[in-house]
Amino acid sequence: NKFNKELQWATWEILNLPNLNEEQVKAFIDSLRDDPSQSANLLAEAKKLNDAQA
């Protein structure tokens, strides 16, 4: 389904953001699992944090 694909994509993207530490990655992945419908928003937040920590 749509959420499953978005969840998989967001998870992959977050795992590959180079500037997030392990705790941050875990927190984003946990949030994705808690509410897959928020995957686009969570991915945007993760990318923003990744850029800020570059």
Results as ranks from 00 to 15, higher is better:
1 N>Q: 05
18 P>Y: 11
7 L>M: 06
6 E>A: 06
8 Q>W: 10
3 F>M: 11
29 I>V: 07
43 L>F: 06
50 N>A: 05
10 A>N: 03
51 D>I: 09
25 V>H: 05
43 L>N: 01
4 N>F: 11
54 A>Y: 11
10 A>F: 14
46 A>N: 00
36 P>F: 11
17 L>I: 01
1 N>V: 03
25 V>M: 10
14 I>Y: 01
11 T>L: 14
53 Q>V: 08
40 A>Y: 15
3 F>E: 14
11 T>H: 03
37 S>R: 06
19 N>Y: 13
23 E>T: 13
18 P>E: 09
43 L>Q: 03
48 K>F: 10
50 N>L: 01
16 N>R: 13
31 S>T: 08
12 W>I: 04
33 R>P: 01
46 A>S: 02
44 A>R: 11
54 A>S: 12
35 D>L: 06
8 Q>F: 07
2 K>D: 15
42 L>Y: 08
6 E>D: 09
10 A>E: 02
30 D>Q: 14
16 N>H: 13
17 L>Y: 05
24 Q>T: 04
4 N>D: 15
12 W>P: 01
53 Q>H: 06
48 K>V: 13
28 F>S: 01
22 E>Y: 12
35 D>H: 08
15 L>Y: 14
17 L>Q: 03
3 F>H: 15
24 Q>S: 02
20 L>Y: 00
4 N>E: 15
53 Q>I: 10
24 Q>E: 03
50 N>S: 11
33 R>Q: 12
41 N>M: 13
12 W>H: 04
24 Q>W: 02
38 Q>R: 11
23 E>A: 13
10 A>K: 03
50 N>W: 01
51 D>N: 13
8 Q>P: 02
51 D>G: 09
30 D>N: 15
49 L>N: 02
51 D>A: 12
26 K>T: 07
23 E>M: 11
39 S>W: 15
37 S>Y: 08
46 A>W: 02
44 A>S: 10
44 A>M: 13
17 L>H: 03
40 A>T: 07
40 A>R: 15
38 Q>L: 09
30 D>M: 15
42 L>F: 09
11 T>Q: 04
29 I>Y: 03
39 S>H: 14
45 E>V: 13
48 K>G: 06
17 L>W: 02
2 K>R: 07
53 Q>F: 07
50 N>K: 01
34 D>Q: 12
37 S>K: 07
15 L>M: 12
20 L>F: 01
23 E>V: 11
9 W>F: 10
13 E>F: 14
35 D>K: 09
18 P>H: 11
45 E>G: 06
51 D>S: 13
27 A>K: 11
7 L>E: 07
19 N>E: 04
34 D>I: 13
20 L>G: 00
51 D>W: 13
42 L>R: 06
32 L>G: 01
52 A>K: 14
46 A>G: 02
20 L>R: 00
20 L>I: 04
28 F>T: 01
51 D>P: 01
1 N>H: 04
54 A>F: 12
2 K>H: 15
25 V>P: 00
19 N>S: 07
51 D>M: 14
6 E>M: 11
54 A>Q: 11
5 K>A: 07
4 N>H: 13
28 F>D: 00
21 N>R: 11
54 A>V: 08
22 E>S: 13
54 A>T: 10
48 K>W: 09
34 D>F: 13
6 E>K: 04
26 K>V: 09
40 A>V: 09
6 E>T: 05
6 E>I: 14
1 N>G: 06
50 N>D: 08
44 A>N: 09
49 L>G: 01
44 A>T: 10
35 D>T: 08
31 S>W: 09
13 E>G: 09
17 L>V: 00
47 K>P: 00
41 N>V: 13
4 N>K: 03
